[in-house]
Amino acid sequence: MSELAHDVRLVSASLVHPNGHRALRAVSLALGAGERVAVIGPSGAGKTTLVRVLATSLKPSGGGLAIGGVDPWQLGVAALRRLRATIGVVHQSPPIPPRLRVVTAVLAGRLGTWPAWRSLASLFVPRDAAAARTALDRLDLGERVFDRCDRLSGGQLQRVGIARVLCQQANVILADEPVSALDPALADLSVGALVAENETRGATLVASLHAVDLALKWFPRIVGMKDGEIVFDRPTAAVTSAMLHELYATEGRVLPQQGVDVVDRSVRRANVVVLKRPGCQ
């Protein structure tokens, strides 16, 4: 499998859900190989749908997608499977069976590249527990490697989902609200781990984020979405406060930030220190 990252190109893609809801309207988005971009916008803006279209889990109703210069929907069964193995998706609510052990859930990131017999053998004796442990360590969860997933909190499970993608060594990482259940310090750590995949391995990274401050801190390019359309797509330095307030106009006057979103007060206090963002706004 290619070690090179893929570029991602979405051209005028639209998506209508079976219930008639139009989630994407003529969305165009181009990322160079190894680029990273944050997608922000109010609830229902189409961020999740955008991630799923890029992940080849939804086929656009109109327009086109190219990953690494190839339209995935023109590929044959085997080629599409190989392509999908190079795309890592972090889901907002991690789709992990509660009975699975953490080590198994993380190593499941390798299933796309392992032969079936190795996958089955790894259920009994984890094939590469050290790799799972390393991925978890980066998210401050290393000591839970042999616990069962139903013993974890929502935030811990979300980090298991991130660790799975770290373990996958994907060329393209698509993260859909990857830190929505985390306190500010851990959210910062986890987004940092995803960004490190982009910076050190050159994986192309798209992350939809609810917390504007995290997006501005970690990403050099911001895409604002609303009502299934891209409202702006700019370098972070060129994103103004007015643009952000207009984007979130329907959600009140306060911009959604990791700091104010979090319910736990003690965590909120810690956040003030952690998330001081240099040079924006």
Binding site: A85, V89, H91, A116
Partner: peptide, 26 residues
């Protein structure tokens, strides 16, 4: 909950692996 299997299939997992890593455990 079939989302777990679907997530694995979407990451290139073969059918049998998705069966034993997602559907059978749940």
């Amino acid at each position: 909950d079939t989302r777990s299997a679907r997530a694995l299939l979407e990451a290139g997992s073969p059918r049998v692996a998705a069966l034993f890593y997602a559907l059978v455990p749940s």
